[in-house]
Structures are given as structure tokens and as C-alpha cells.
Amino acid sequence: MTLAILMLHALLGMLFILAAGFVYVDVLNVSEGNLPRIRCISRLTAVLMWAAFFIGGYWYVVHYGPEKGYILKGPWPFAHDFFMETKEHVVMGLLLLATFLPIAATNDLVGSKTARRLMLWIAALLVLTGVGMEGAGAIISMGAKVALLPH
């Protein structure tokens, strides 16, 4: 069950990245026809980020303690000291930026170049930071794995 929670966290994070990437491409090709879809997927992006945050947060608060102990005693202590510490705090800014995406999507994206540029910046930051979060998660998992391998 613990692993299922962790995998669901990673899956929701990946879906969040895909949704943000979808918004980026859709804004590049914005028209009256796809405007409702951009706003809908922007809301979905925020929902996916909140879901990933809550599930990951639950796992972190309830289940991460023992794993942290293994990692710190293993050959990759930086998996916690740098990657987890950075991930658990950067994700809060990412959550706010994802929440801001549907707010920015309420502007006149068809008529305003500035509104489109803002959306593109937000979506790009969400994708790039999201990929960084996924990568950090992989390193943290590997840090636990190498700690438990027989030496």
C-alpha cells in the first residue's frame, strides 16, 4: 500500500507535467476554438498538482521517516540532504504557480500577446520544474535502494 501511494504520487506528477505541456502547445496555437480547452486543461493541471502534493505530502509525513534513516546511513546521503530537502520545499512554490495557471488563463489569450507570453512562461516553468521534481524523486528512491543493497 505504501508503494502504491508513492507510485500514485509519481504518476500524478507525470500527468501534471503532461497537462502543463499540453497547455503550452495549445497556447502556441490559441484561437477562439481551443480557448475553452486551454482553460479546462489549465484547471486540470492545477488539480493534478494539488492531488500529487497531497498524496506525496501524506507519504512524506507518515512513511518517509524510516526511509530517511536508511538513506542517511547509506552511500547516497545526498539523496536526502540535497534532493529531498530541496524537493519538499521547492514543490510549495510549484504548487502556487500551478494554482496561478488557471487564473492567468482567464485573460484574453486570443487578443493579448502579453497574456499568451505569461501563460507560456508559467507552463514552461511548470514543465521544467516538474521534470526536476520527478528526477529528484528518482534519485531519492535510488538513495534508499542503494542503502538497502548488500555491500
Binding site: 496561478f100 485573460n107 493579448s112
Partner: peptide
Amino acid sequence: TSTLNAQTRGFGLSVAITSIVSALLV
């Protein structure tokens, strides 16, 4: 002359402010 609505301007600035405040809290 702005083409961005008040909510975008307010919450956009709030993202920047809160991100920095959060980092300083760390």
C-alpha cells in the same frame, strides 16, 4: 493599457512574493 486582469496581476505578484518568503522561511 494593461491587457491582464486584476486577479492575474494580484495573484501573479503573490506567486513571486510567496515563493521568496517561503524560501526565506526555509
